[in-house]
């Protein structure tokens, strides 16, 4: 990353990042989980979370996207099983597919002393660092944040800041099927997206990309401990009727 800011506030000592490696996660589950984490972290900015997952095939349209970027008509979309969702994140249209790695940091930007713009630069810096490890030179796109490689988008960036807490984030094409990208103009690009597997001479495995993203996020934002979970955070305890006071 050439333009990435390197000054950042170090969070307090012992601050930990809770990383959730969730495998395939339906988009509805992601939205509910993200909403809950944003609420929790806005109430306690010393905590932080990172969601790493992939989504079943479908299309999301961010605030900078347009339905005209999705070529298939509604019948074709139905036949392919691609739901189209309008989401309140930045960035344009994105086709979600198996073989991508979605990386959604849920961080208090106030606690890190970052503006939304600086946070996006950090996200792009993380993606450039990741690509470099695979021998790929990525260039941040200043017009539509994301990482381009030889004129094609490899990493999509689309974030949201709610109550001072970030959500959504990066989607990296590790090794998805690239053919369907011909039908969706991701972020309005005329050329279809590319992937790390296509551009890199190294072997690309999704779990490896996932693991490196966790490490790069923790390092970039100055977390000295990472707790890794492989399941959704437990719902807060709710007493049931059976837990009511027992009268013998």
């Amino acid at each position: 990353m050439t333009n990435a800011p390197h000054t950042r506030e170090q969070p307090g000592p012992g601050r930990a990042l809770n990383a959730y490696l969730l495998g395939s996660l339906p988009f509805d589950s992601l939205l509910a989980l993200q909403r809950r984490l944003v609420y929790d972290i806005s109430g306690d900015p010393s905590t932080a979370a990172l969601l790493v997952c992939e989504h079943p095939a479908g299309v999301t349209v961010g605030r900078e996207g347009s339905r005209s970027h999705v070529r298939p008509n509604p019948e074709e979309l139905n036949a392919r099983g691609w739901a189209v969702r309008w989401v309140s994140r930045g960035g344009g249209v994105l086709l979600h597919q198996p073989g991508q790695v979605a990386c959604y940091p849920v961080l208090s930007l106030d606690a890190l002393g970052l503006t939304a713009g600086a946070y996006l630069e950090h996200l792009q810096g993380i993606a450039v660092d990741l690509l470099r490890e695979y021998g790929v030179a990525g260039e941040p796109d200043p017009q539509h944040p994301g990482i381009m490689v030889r004129g094609r988008r490899l990493v999509h960036v689309g974030a949201a800041v709610r109550q001072g807490v970030s959500c959504f984030g990066l989607v990296v094409n590790a090794d998805p099927d690239l053919e369907p990208f011909r039908d969706v103009r991701c972020d309005g690009d005329p050329l279809p997206m590319t992937s790390l597997a296509r551009e890199s001479g190294h072997r690309v495995r999704v779990p490896g990309v996932r693991q490196r993203l966790v490490e790069l996020v923790a390092d970039r934002f100055g977390f000295d401990r990472v707790s890794v979970f492989h399941s959704l955070p437990r719902a807060p305890y709710q007493p049931t009727r059976h837990a009511a006071a027992h009268r013998p």
Partner: peptide, 11 residues
Amino acid sequence: AEVLIPGATFD
């Protein structure tokens, strides 16, 4: 309200 910068929404 919501405002938009390239790549992110901000409440």
